[in-house]
Every structure is written in C-alpha cells, then in structure tokens.
Design a protein around this nucleic acid. Structure first.
Lengths: 318, 318
DNA sequence: CGCAATATAATACATTTGTATTCCAATAAC
DNA sequence: GTTATTGGAATACAAATGTATTATATTGCG
C-alpha cells in the first residue's frame, strides 16, 4: 500500500490499519505514521483510543492462582454460581477496565439468543459492555432496570442499555423516568401512568440481570448528583452503606428507611432474586461494604470483583 | 499484596501478575517492578516474552475492508472454502506472527473433538499453534505429515506436532524418519519397515491438514539445510518454484523431476486433496509463486496469507 | 465572503521502554 | 574447597512513547 492510497483511507479504516500495525505487527508509531502519511501524534492518540474503546482487546492466558482460589472460596461462602476475581490496582479507572474486561468475558459466555437481559448502570458496566462480542440476536431484548439521570452524566442509564442493545442487535426498553422523583406523589403518578410499570414487569421476567453498585463516597457517580450528594449525611445516619439499582441498603443488605428510597424509580433489589442469572460487576476496596451487603442478602448469584475486595469478603465470612 | 508475598511468587505466577498489570491494568514497568520487588529490566523482558509466547494475545475487532475484499476474491478465484488475509509488513518475523495469529483463529473454529489433525512444519505453523486455545480433546489425534530434520533446527517437525498435540490434549503420531533420505534405496527400506507407512496412512485419512510451504530463497528454513541448499541451482533448473511437505513443485503445482523429490519422506501433496479441510498458512511476497502453484493445483481448500500476496494471487487470475 | 470551530501537522520535551553492560550471589561441577 | 555457570540486580543509554503547544489547513455557518 502506498501513501496515496493511505491518504484516501477513511478514518475507520485508518483506525483498523493502526490497530493491526501497532498491536499485532508491532511496528513503532513512527513507522506507522510514515507509512500512512499522518502525524505520529495522531497515531499515538488513536492507538490509545483503540485500547480504551474496546476495538483492541487483550486476553491473558495465565490464570493467577491466588485469584482462582479466591473465586472458589467466594462461590462457597456466598452460594454463588460464578465468580471472577482480577488483581487489584490503585488507579480507579484502570481497575474499572480490568473488572469490566472480566465481566465482559463472563457475559459473553452467558448471553444467548432468545433472552431478555436487564441492565443497571455504571461505568464498570459500561466497560463490560464494550468488551462484548457484537452479535445479531433477533429474538432478544434489553431492559433497563432503573430510571435515568437528569443531569447529563458521562454515562447515563439510557446510554448503557442502548449500547448493550446495539452490541447484541437486540431491542431495547427504557424506564422513561428520573431515577429519583421530586416527591412521593410524582413517583406514584409516573408509576401508574407512563408505561414504566410495564417495563419493570418485563425486567422482573428477564433471564439475565447485569448490575453494579455504589458506595457513599464522592467517588461514586450517583452521589455526584446534587440531589443525592447533599443527603449523604442523612443516608449514613440511616445506616446505609451504599446502593444497588438506586436503592440504598444497610450492612445486612436491607433497604434503609430514607426518603430517597421512597422516591426511587427502579426495580427493587429483592426482585433480582427471581432472575435466573444476576451478575454484580463491581470492585475497589471502598465498595467492599456495599458489595458484602448485596451478597449477604443474596440479591445476585454471580460476581466480578478485584482481589482486595475478594479477600475482604472471604475474611468476613470466616 | 505486599512485597514479601510477591518475593515468594513462583516464576509462573510472576509472569501472570506481570501480564495482568502491564497488558490489562496498564501500569508502567517501573511500577510493576516496584510492586513485585524485582528489577525493571526483568519486567521488561518478561513482558516481551508474554507477547511472543502467546500468553498474551490481542484481538482486533475492526476488519480491514481491503483485506475482506481480497478474501472474497480469493475464495472465488481459487474455489477456496475459507480465506484470511492480514495486512502486509516488511519484517518477516512480524509477518509470521500476524499470519500465525490469523491462522490460529481459523483453526480454533475448525478444530473439534473426535478429529484427526495432520500437520506439516514451519515457523508460521508454529506461531499458529501457539495462538490456539488449549483443550482437552480425548478422542483426537495429531499426525505428522513429514519426516524430521536431522540438523536440529529451531523448530523441528516433531516439535510442531508435539506442541499441537499438547495444546489439544490429543495423541500424537510421528513420522520417525528424516525428511530426505540419503538414497532412494534407504527410502524404500524406511517406508517398508519402520511403521512410517502406517503413520502416513493415518495422515491420509485425517479430517484436517495444516501445512505451510517454502520458496527457493535462503530465507526459507528448509533450504537452510545444507543437503537442500546446495541443490538450489539444480532445483531451479528443473523448474521448481518452492516446496510443500518437502516436495518441490513447478509453477503449475506439479512435482518436479528431481532427486530430492525421489528421496522425500512425507505425504505426497496430491493426497491432501482427499482431506476434507486443508489449510495453507503462509505469507511474504517471496513465497507468492509457490503459494500460487499450490492453489492452482488445488491441494488445499483454505488459505491464510498477507495482503501483498493476496493481491498478486488475485491479479494473476484475472 | 469572512469567521469561528474543528481537525491535523509540526515541534518540543518529559517519561517510559528496550537493551547492553557490569557485577554479584547462588548453584552446580570438579 | 575451588571454579564455572547461571540468573538476576544495578546501571546506563538510546529509542520509542505520551503529551502539550503552536501553527496550519478545513469545515461549516452566518
């Protein structure tokens, strides 16, 4: 291929060439920029994006025995069907990608045609979905498990379900309501009128649920919403350790008595128990408490997390 | 994990940690060496090995349209069942790895339990086999298609079949003879007495054959054997353009009349036609002639090669 | 048309990586 | 016990990479 041809490449084909040359052939970025006739800085940027957006994925074929052991211990301790544990790293974003990758691999094996897949929200979930192989499932559907965020966040609940549906080639059903209603009355109105109930009914009957969870620190995306963030002291006083599907739970995994829980529009966590396969994808030591609460209550039967959290979980069951 | 624990890690677990931290988490080699308490240079070396030995594999999820087009054209032009084309790069070793990767992906999809898989020899084949997922096939076997090299080469025929059998968890049958006999008489003796015939019979009945090919330059491993290398002028005079399974072919794909062909111990190329799936894995522009010859004769029905060769092949069928 | 917004090239620089070299300790061979 | 051999640490340095800055098209819009 000569430079004239290269110059005529669309940006998508440019990305594909860079992916091959850099990640498979092992050319240097300089060589690639020469060959393609573009600035090296651009190659560098695109190469980074390719990793981040899941166009290039790496598989590690050496299991870590310490993680494999933890997986087995967690399965036994919390009666889980499937567990994946990845090594811990300090950087949150890197950890999310690692857990997301592992979650994607688990999902890849569980997803089949003819299923209804319900999905929560979160950056880790978003990473998992990027990792999935795309398919053309004709008889499948994706359902959102919770209302949307009004303040445009980097990842909205709508975005997660849309992306999953697109990747799978499935239909998508949205909970067209805010995650927290302004008042208990408005919640009633929304539930009775807007078709939200039908979607949640569909979610209850789904074959596979994919959820994440949030703790009470400011690191968690949900608490970054002003409506939630300003209530953090309240929530802590009420005994909450974090949330799943927008519902705040205490250390035993029971919903706490708090105004936010009365205004949430999402499937109640207890309903997850009716779903054959439910996966919690979440890690980072600061989420250990809420993860433990969710497992104690038995809301989910599969888990993807990191080594440090797994150790905590195993230790507290001794 | 603290340093004391890390220091106690076996080297295999060390490799696994490095794989995760470097390729998935994206830590720098310095960070990893600090965390594991080892020299950075060692991390660097291991990280390189992990890529090379197939413990870390990368998947590109963006197809190159130019390659996809060539695949379709080749299928049509040479009546092939499956074709994979990867972008070309100048460096031979890099190209081998790319083609090997693509070959591994094709093989992964074709290999099933209960099969007999026959295999030739070559560095590209070796790369393909490294890329395969390991399995536990109880009712499968691997058969070598050709005799061994006496002069210890970096990859011997025995090594390729052994590694494939190990990866698949299958039995392995070897052609316990040199690829070229010292004389026509010794060849007769070997064929009648040593069980070589039984193995070749088994190969003829195999379900899947995996072969590579060699050209007549000194780049090719086979011609590096002194017994072959010194006959290169002869071979060229007799019209040979390269070899498959140790048998030298002319541009039409017919075995040439040459002493080496009379002394080769390997399955004759024509017998490949009886095998349901036969894959030729080979690339590099200097091999275009022999690849074309093999395809013209219809010895194989699947092909893995690179873009430049694919273009040549398509062009010469116009 | 001119203007702002965007994308890319060109450049520079700090960080990270690959690699060679030397040195040291543990181990095996004598 | 002494001497090779080996594997890894320590070091140094060149190459490659990540990133910021500025300059230069290119595009879309009023």
């Amino acid at each position: 291929m000569n430079n004239d041809e290269a110059a005529a490449l669309g940006s998508e084909q440019m990305r594909a060439r860079i992916a091959w040359y850099y990640y498979v052939a092992g050319l240097t970025q300089q060589e690639i920029s020469d060959r393609l006739g573009i600035a090296r800085a651009r190659v560098n940027k695109i190469a980074g994006q390719l990793r981040a957006d899941g166009s290039v994925v790496v598989d590690i074929r050496l299991p870590l025995v310490s993680c494999v052991e933890l997986e087995e211990q967690l399965k036994a301790a919390y009666a889980l069907k499937q567990v994946a544990v990845v090594p811990s790293v300090a950087d949150d974003e890197q950890l999310r990608r690692m857990i997301g990758d592992a979650g994607g691999i688990m999902l890849d094996a569980l997803i089949a045609d003819g299923q209804c897949i319900s999905v929560g929200w979160g950056r880790t979930l978003s990473a998992s979905i990027k990792r999935l192989r795309s398919r053309q499932l004709k008889d499948s559907s994706v359902v959102s498990l919770m209302g949307g965020l009004t303040r445009g966040s980097e990842t909205n609940t709508f975005e997660v379900s849309t992306e999953l549906a697109k990747t799978l080639g499935a239909d998508c059903y949205y909970v067209t309501a805010p995650i927290y209603c302004p008042s208990i009355e408005s919640r009633e109105i929304l539930l009775t009128h807007s078709g939200v109930n039908e979607v949640m009914e569909r979610a209850r009957k789904s074959d596979l649920a994919i959820v994440s969870c949030g703790d009470l620190s400011h690191k968690t995306a949900l608490t970054a919403m002003s409506s939630v963030g300003e209530r953090l002291p309240d929530l802590k006083k009420s005994g909450a350790v974090g949330e799943i599907l927008g519902t705040f739970l205490d250390a035993q995994g029971l919903p706490v008595d708090h105004i936010l829980n009365q205004r949430v529009i999402a499937m109640p966590p207890a309903d997850l128990k009716m779903i054959p396969n439910s996966i919690l994808i979440s890690g980072g030591l600061y989420k250990a408490d809420i993860i433990e609460a969710i497992l104690c209550a038995g809301y989910v039967n599969c888990l993807v997390t990191d080594e440090a959290v797994a150790q905590r979980l195993v230790a507290s069951r001794r």
